[in-house]
Each structure stands twice: as C-alpha cells, then as structure tokens.
Simulated scan of single mutants.
Amino acid sequence: MTRVLIVEDNPELVGCLYAFLEPLGYVLDDARDGLTGLRTATQNDYDAVLLDVTLPQLDGLALCRRLRQEFQNPVPVLMLTAQASVDDRVRGLAQGADDYLVKPFSLQELHARIQAMVRRAQCRLVQGSLVWEDLTVDTQLPQAWRQGQHISLTPTTHKLLLCLMRTAPAVVRKQEMVYLLWGDEPPASDALRTHIHDLRQQIGRNFSSALIKTVHGIGWSLDRGQDAA
C-alpha cells in the first residue's frame, strides 16, 4: 500500500488522479492550497507527495523548501507544473524536489515515476540511522542506542529527536517543534517542554553527559556531549 499526498488546486486534475491511482491500490489524501499541504505533509506519514508549483497561500517551491529545511522531512516529492523550461525544473530540484513532471503528462508515466521515487527512498532507508556523537537513532522505529545501550523512545520523542539530529548542530526553534507536533492547533499548556524533558531523560539518563542543549528564548540543539541546561 502506497500512501500519497496530492497538493493541487485544480479540482479536475485531483479527480483525475484519484480515478487513476486509487484502483492501482494507492491511498490518497489531498490539499488545495500550500499551507494546508504543508500542514498535512508534516502531520502524517506519506510515501510520496505530488506537488503543484502554482498554489494559493504558499507556492510549491516554498512548500518544498520549508518541508526540507524547517521540518527535515525526507518524503519523496514529485513536482507537477506547466512550467517546462530547464530553469524552472532546476529551481524545483534545488528546493528539494526529487523529480519533475510537466503538465499535461501521461498518467502511466506518473505512476512509474512515483514507483521509482518510492523504491529509491526505501533503499535509502533500509537499516537507516542517524548518528550524533555516541548516539545512534533508528530513522523508522522509535528506538536509539547510546554507548551500546538500547533506548526505547515514544513516537513523539522519536519525532523530536530526528528533527534535532537532522538539524544539528543548528538550533531548532520552539515554534518549529510546536508546528511539527501539532500544526496550527498547539495545546494550551506548554506540553512541548514536557516532551523535551522526557527526551532528555530517555537519551541522557544513566550517562555521564547530556546531549540536548537549551538555547534560552530560542529553542534547542544537540550538544557535543557536554552537560546541557
């Protein structure tokens, strides 16, 4: 089962994609503007995103850039656009897109390109892990290892830790973490600090040094094995 998000504001094209892809076994979601697309892509797990370039509220290039840079989301992205020049394709790929398809396109070719992107992503993620200092984190399962000891994570702390790992050593802003977990509907309480505390305990308990550093008034980052505040 392949789960795909369609971010496209043309209802006729969206209907055509549903009619073609669903009988092939795809599970589809769709968003009709860029901000909704970004929120949907970051709140759910997809095997691929079909992304129009010209969108209301947030264009596809900006959406792809934010998906990669802010949220460190590696989901394969296929740009769908009527802009056929080489410069347009280069701009899309430079923002983090994996492939580019010019409208009008063959649905059979679209299907083949989605399959190819998903295969490449699955190959990259086989036994995938991220490493920082003496900490290794599984990119798929909520687990990590530090100094040879296995660490069980919750789905939420796993998501936060992957974000920190992919951004390190740069700081992840508090607002980015809040959006990562809750989108535009954050809880009234400061639940994020509770999750950060839990993550500190999970990867720092029983070890001589902490790895998560608080950058006061801004957010958090991964430290080089020093005692972090």
Rank of each mutant, 00 (worst) to 15 (best):
T2F: 06
R3I: 05
R3H: 10
R3A: 11
L5D: 13
I6S: 06
N10W: 07
L13C: 09
G15V: 02
C16K: 11
A19D: 09
L24R: 15
R32T: 15
R39K: 12
T40Q: 10
T42Y: 03
V49D: 05
L51V: 04
Q57M: 03
Q57E: 15
G60M: 14
G60N: 13
L61T: 10
A62H: 12
L63C: 10
L67W: 12
Q72H: 14
P76M: 06
V77Q: 07
T81E: 05
T81N: 01
A82L: 09
Q83E: 15
D87R: 13
D87Y: 07
V90E: 14
G92A: 07
Q95P: 09
G96K: 05
G96C: 00
A97E: 11
D99I: 10
V102Y: 02
P104C: 12
P104V: 06
E109K: 05
I114E: 01
Q115S: 11
R119V: 14
Q127S: 14
S129C: 11
S129Q: 12
W132D: 08
T136D: 06
T136H: 09
A144M: 03
R146I: 00
Q147E: 14
H150T: 07
I151K: 00
P155D: 03
T157F: 01
T157N: 09
K159V: 02
K159D: 03
K159E: 02
L160C: 03
L161P: 03
C163F: 00
L164F: 00
A168I: 05
A168D: 01
A168T: 10
P169D: 02
Q175T: 12
E176L: 08
L181P: 01
W182I: 08
G183D: 06
D184L: 09
D184R: 10
P186Q: 04
A188T: 10
D190N: 14
T194R: 11
R200S: 02
R205Y: 14
N206C: 08
N206A: 10
A210K: 08
I212H: 04
T214N: 13
V215I: 15
G217K: 02
S221M: 14
D227E: 15
A229M: 13
